[in-house]
Design a binder for these strands. Sequence first.
DNA 1: TTACTCATGTAACAAGTTACATGATTTA
DNA 2: TAAATCATGTAACTTGTTACATGAGTAA
Lengths: 165, 165
Amino acid sequence: MLSELEGAIMLEVHMRRRRTAFQVRSAFLKSVTSDWSGSAGSVYPAIKRLEESGYIQRTTEIDGRGTQTLTATSEGISALHKWAVDPDLSAVITSDPFRTRSDYLSSLPAKKRKDALDAIRVKLADALIEIDNLLDQDHILKQSANELAGQLLRMRIAWLDGLNR
Amino acid sequence: MLSELEGAIMLEVHMRRRRTAFQVRSAFLKSVTSDWSGSAGSVYPAIKRLEESGYIQRTTEIDGRGTQTLTATSEGISALHKWAVDPDLSAVITSDPFRTRSDYLSSLPAKKRKDALDAIRVKLADALIEIDNLLDQDHILKQSANELAGQLLRMRIAWLDGLNR
DNA sequence: TTACTCATGTAACAAGTTACATGATTTA
DNA sequence: TAAATCATGTAACTTGTTACATGAGTAA
């Protein structure tokens, strides 16, 4: 089964029909939801693995720059589908730094707590604005993901507001 | 700054006043929100690091079993607080397998999509029942975390329902 | 006495991060 | 022509996973 990073790379390559490793990296680097750092040391080896598994095909362009265009093979598309629809993977609750801290934060004495929560709310509001801006633009391929990220932030803010009352 | 795993270990040790490494591991292993696997190979080295940083103190009990009780030092408590209230860490949007798949799932043709979403909804409902059961019990120290995990699952289910309409 | 739980740890392996290294093309 | 961007990759290091190794205490 594909790893989360491998699946995300396959998604980029397949959904956009063709991508270079550099474009995949850039997408991760720019993503507001910092799912993956997009570090060269993770993306290039992962693509190498996907190629060795026969999920990705590489075509070297004749542009002197050595640009390599990646496309998903039919086996790659199958593997991607299997990975994407697996119900267990979609039900997993992964680590959330906000959730990890929530009980500690709510246990703080009122004054200290208010200061901490106010600073956090500011950052959450900033992040939300950034995501809402994205939703106003094109980004058709990431619309649901950005929508869900926005909902997550709103959920956190609502939780903070519930505490301070 | 503490890593997420180190912070979570400090939280366990500090919030419960004293813990053995085994108890910390067990808490992670049993946790419904599978934030950390609780593997021995991650917990024991992390505790070693925390001890070397002077954040945790180790007392070996005289029970023949070699049980080692861990307590947080005052430096450890300071580091924990700094880590817990850092606004940037609370605003981070970490990887979410459900969100990663959301755009792919919504792009599927109606029939295929319905089958996939139905299977996922079943798993989400199961996970939600498990969390709601936990909330009915004691678990005072993890109440907020479990509450937020439940809200996350409800959010996913609502998103699925929105698609199938 | 057998099985389970409590208890600590290491070794091999896999995967990710940061930093480095290199060079072509484009834009100001 | 200098700076930014496009483009690919490796090396050292850190962290985490799986599996192994060991042994004491407890309950059936």
